[in-house]
C-alpha cells in the first residue's frame, strides 16, 4: 500500500525525489504517511482536498482485504 501511495504521489508532483512514504501499524489501523516537497503540497491535496480525497479513495479500495482501517496522512 505504501508503494501505491508512492506511485500516485510521484506521478502528481514536480519533485518525485522528495516523496517519502512511511507506514505505521497500530492495533486497529494502518497509517500511511506521505511527505512531499513544500511546493508540491498543493499537488497532492488539491482544491478543498479533492486530490487527497481521491488518493484516499483509491488506497482504501485497494485495502479492502485488510482487516484494519487504512488512513493516508499528508504530513508537512
Amino acid at each position: 500500500m505504501e508503494e501505491l501511495v508512492k506511485v500516485i504521489a510521484n506521478a502528481l508532483v514536480d519533485n518525485p525525489e522528495a516523496v517519502q512514504v512511511s507506514r505505521q501499524e497500530e492495533e486497529d489501523k494502518i497509517i500511511i504517511e506521505l511527505r512531499v516537497a513544500p511546493e508540491d503540497m498543493g499537488k497532492v491535496i488539491g482544491k478543498q482536498g479533492r486530490i487527497a480525497r481521491a488518493i484516499r479513495t483509491v488506497v482504501r479500495a485497494s485495502a479492502t482485504r485488510e482487516q484494519k482501517k487504512v488512513i493516508v496522512d499528508i504530513v508537512d
Partner: peptide, 23 residues
C-alpha cells in the same frame, strides 16, 4: 473494488489519471 460504492473508486482513479497525464 475498482468501481467502488456507486463508482467512487473509478471516479477517483479517473480524476487522478487526468491530473497525471495533463500535468
Amino acid at each position: 473494488i475498482l468501481i467502488g460504492r456507486r463508482g467512487d473508486t473509478l471516479d477517483a482513479l479517473q480524476y487522478l489519471t487526468n491530473l497525471v497525464v495533463n500535468k
